[in-house]
Simulated assay, not measured.
Amino acid sequence: MAEIFDLFGDPVPANWGQRGRPEHVPNQQNRNRVSLLVAMGWSNARIASALFITQPTLRKHYFSELKFRDVARDRLVAQVGVKLMDGVNSGNVSAIREFQKYLERNDLMLYGQTRQPEKSVPAAKPAKAEKVGKKAAALAAAQQPDAGTPMGELMMRRQQAATAH
């Protein structure tokens, strides 16, 4: 029996028009969606709800996309790289810039740093003086009188006399 297709080219389920809900028919667009969502780290429950299907239906029809969960992100990144490389080969300047950023991100992932020459490290900054509170600053100022004023001169004489004895 020949398979029947609707106006959009999708196969029509066998029980179409009969009692009960027709079976979900996976198409390439939904397969691509599932692959993308798996690569983005979505859970099966979240993917199923995005496609308006149940989790058992997701596992039944999209098991081949779900089994590549471990490498899905790498496959997606590689696909983006291929598209960028196509743009670079065609001479697209913005694609060249994006491809350079793509390479830098890849190098960061592989080596933990960019392969660009290291920038000169500035000299170590001197340690900052410990901050003193208002009361401690006032107490320290009281111990160091200003010799330029008559009161400060008198206080200095008294301090010197106290330390001499």
Results as ranks from 00 to 15, higher is better:
159 Q>P: 02
54 T>D: 06
25 V>L: 05
82 V>N: 05
135 K>L: 12
91 G>A: 04
82 V>I: 09
104 E>G: 07
57 T>S: 03
39 A>N: 07
46 R>E: 15
33 R>H: 15
75 R>Q: 12
90 S>A: 11
147 A>T: 13
29 Q>S: 02
57 T>R: 01
8 F>I: 02
60 K>M: 03
61 H>T: 01
132 V>I: 12
35 S>K: 14
94 S>T: 12
144 Q>R: 08
73 R>A: 01
48 A>E: 00
120 S>R: 15
156 M>D: 06
113 Q>N: 03
104 E>I: 06
67 K>D: 06
143 Q>P: 02
105 R>S: 07
104 E>R: 14
102 Y>V: 04
164 A>Q: 14
57 T>A: 08
97 R>Q: 04
148 G>V: 11
156 M>W: 09
119 K>S: 10
47 I>T: 08
145 P>S: 06
62 Y>H: 10
109 M>Q: 09
4 I>F: 13
37 L>N: 06
66 L>D: 01
11 P>F: 02
14 A>V: 13
65 E>T: 05
35 S>Y: 03
162 A>R: 15
93 V>K: 14
7 L>I: 04
20 G>P: 01
84 L>T: 10
122 P>T: 13
55 Q>R: 11
55 Q>L: 04
93 V>D: 12
134 K>H: 05
158 R>C: 14
156 M>F: 02
10 D>L: 06
145 P>A: 08
142 A>C: 01
28 Q>N: 14
1 M>Q: 13
148 G>F: 05
91 G>D: 04
95 A>P: 09
150 P>H: 05
69 R>S: 09
21 R>V: 15
53 I>Y: 00
11 P>K: 03
130 E>Q: 08
122 P>C: 14
6 D>Q: 01
97 R>Y: 08
2 A>D: 09
39 A>C: 11
74 D>A: 04
53 I>A: 03
1 M>W: 05
50 A>R: 12
53 I>L: 00
119 K>A: 11
134 K>T: 13
33 R>T: 15
79 Q>K: 12
157 R>H: 06
47 I>P: 06
31 R>E: 14
87 G>W: 05
82 V>E: 07
47 I>C: 06
32 N>E: 14
46 R>G: 10
164 A>Y: 11
90 S>G: 07
156 M>R: 15
104 E>D: 11
69 R>Q: 09
111 Y>A: 09
133 G>Q: 06
5 F>T: 05
143 Q>N: 12
130 E>N: 01
20 G>L: 02
28 Q>F: 11
37 L>D: 10
62 Y>G: 07
